[in-house]
Design a protein around this nucleic acid. Sequence first.
RNA 1: GCGGGUGUGGCGGAACUGGCAGACGCGCCGGGUUUAGGACCCGGUGGGCUCAGGCCCUUGGAGGUUCAAGUCCUCUCACCCGCACCA
Length: 799
Amino acid sequence: MERYDPKPIEAKWQRVWEDERTFNVPTEPGPDVQHHYQLEMLPYPSGVLHMGHVLNYTLGDVITWFRRRNGWVVLRPMGYDSFGLPAENAAIAAGGHPREIVERNIETIRSQMKKLGWAIDWERELSTHDPAFYRWTQWLFLRFFEAGLAYRKEAPVNWCPNDRTVLADSQVIDGHCERCGALVEAKSLEQWFFKITAYADELLEYDLPPGGSWPERTKTIQRNFIGRSEGAEILFRVEELDQDIPVFTTRPDTLFGATFFVLAPEHPLVAKLVAGTPHEEETLAYVRKTAAAGADERAQADREKTGVETGRFATNPVNGERIPIWVADYVLMEYGTGAIMAVPGHDDRDREFAEKFGLPIRLVIDEDERLVNSDRFDGQPAADAKRAIVEWLGEQGRGASAVSFRLRDWSWSRQRYWGCPIPIVYCDDCGVVPVPDDQLPVLLPDIDDYKPKGTAPLATATDWVRTPCPRCGREGRREVDTMDTFVDSAWYFLRYVDPHDETAPFQREHVDHWLPVTEYIGGIDHATGHLLYSRFFVKVLNELGLVGFREPFGRVFHQGWVQMGGSKMSKSKGNVAGPDALVAEHGADAVRLYILFMGPADQDMEWTDSGLEGMSRFVRRLWRTVNEVADRPVESGGKANDQSPLRKKAHETIARVTDDIDRRFQFNTPIAAVMELVNEINRDGHDPASRFAAETAVSLIQPYAPHLAAELWERLGHERVWQEPWPEADQALLERDTFELVVQVNGKVRDRFDVSASLSEDELVARATASPKVQAQLNGKQIRKTIVVPRKLVNIVAS
RNA sequence: GCGGGUGUGGCGGAACUGGCAGACGCGCCGGGUUUAGGACCCGGUGGGCUCAGGCCCUUGGAGGUUCAAGUCCUCUCACCCGCACCA
């Protein structure tokens, strides 16, 4: 028998799949066909594939093969998230135009993917930097713009001084740039936003299709990020200026405990409050100082509180009390109304401030959670008082229930070159004018110097910038910011359905057929970014009548990190291992098997080369075992209905593997189960069931090791294993006629022996007590109780 | 601080609804085969005692529920992740 050599075998079958278009599915598969949309997050071609990708896509691949063999039509596309900072920074580091770098990386990734034998419909491949794709990104932006959901405003934004661009909240990690690690600064700039806050409440609901589920962890991260708080908005009055200032509070029950009032330094009324007063100079100096401090510095919750008194007073609507107004940077303009009523008796931050500045502290709720010092509300439970006080304020026209969110609108314009151009023209007469649909795409021009400089590099493409206003025809200027890559990835999964349509981003009937995505696999690091933005996009597209569903992804799964040397793979740590050398040495099948065998797919795992060698040994053992069986005459295979232990073992393995993949979504244990079966075949190669067992092992391992399985199946005298229906376990053969009875005395195992499965409970107890080992333990003791677990054990309680 | 998660042999892990803890693999030990190494094959491998038949201990730690706990409950420790001056 020849040695197992994966290279020619894998090349052979990859060619067959490509020639026969095995993985291509029709966009309209016809009615009554069970369909499954299998998607994994598309790679950034800022580099090439590493083992984390191998895990992600192999996982999706096993599901794809498994579903196909169970009779489903599976759409399984692939593409490249090729615009954006990661790719652009890679290009700057490597020296070269981003397009060249990205397209070179795409070539490499495609060939890596093909070598791994992933069942991808290559006719649907897309790249987000391709004008044929981004034309529709622009088209979708225009629909958002028309709906008033894309708008420009000047706002404090996160500014990365190194990448010289604005970042979204989700791209700021611990006050640092997600991409380069630089300390992020606060800057006030006019930027493009999507009105995601209008969907805050809806994003808290998961309107999933049947079979859909999201990890609790992910939903929690999104819930925290959205940060919904219920409370009340209450008007405080500044008598001298005849001005109401609203505050948001979650604790209206503590209103009688408000002893001072605080405005954020950026609050628009600060200047007016102090104008012409002795406090003006000091207050404005404080505001300037705060503005100069970094966002990171200000976010330090544990730093000492600062603030200045304005000399003005606000009137508490509930008791007419005049309390001093302060300005302090622990109050944030972005949250609530930018102003708070300070209740130092019941809020740690307010107490800290009051203690530092000698302000009064008043308790208004006692240990029994009842109101005190609160006039006519005294004695009420705090929960009731919340409602009662808001109701009273409502009657006076001084307050109402309100909900506040932590979520802010999604800032997505970037002062960078490598991104989708925003199809907008600025005209001195007409203002902000959208580029008409029939002039799309607005092509990204080639420029000489695309490196970040703080202003958009596209501004240097003067011929491109200067353009007639689409409305009046006089000279206008193109928008020179570009879109963040998250805009591209917020809808790419829709384009896969109609990737070549030149008339629309997608056809509604097609996306309605395939989506929501049945199974979506990717890193949890996208919980507050891509996964939230995509949900927002789909909700808007649904309301615009472009899609018939309200959630993009049915079932979401996060693979763990593949680590090396105890830390997550990253280019900066230099511990990125790619699949190429491993595939060359051990074959794709061994690599695929090992990456899933390492442990539960949703847990982090440590890559070891010795583990892969072990898997390589298993693959060779399987090769040898099956070849030996194949070489023997078929007649030795025995009758189909024989009851040999090996045949039963094979059926048990079918049941285990199927249940693990289908119901338990567990991918490491099926491999162990097949290993057990192969070990069992090897124990007696001449067992009459060995041919059936070998066929079963090959069939079950096929989603993991499709090349090897195809080859071995052929050697067993059959044709195409991937076209075989998934094997079914024979229930009759899963029933054992004997089982090993475990006998416990007082909960400790004392004996075990085979018994007939037909014995009654009394007979089992009789057999158990008759055991000499049990007798030795009982020795003079009285049996108090016996417990029988059918087909498992007998526990004798004695004392 | 708030929210979520994870702790099982030397290592990765298995044990699904409470019912034999350690499947499967790595590593290691012994043997076979081989000119040698590798590969391959067979056997062993949680710890401790041992009159060699067994006995005791063991799932981060301490309690509890139960005939029975890795699994359920209470407390606690360690590590990881998300949010964090969010009123």
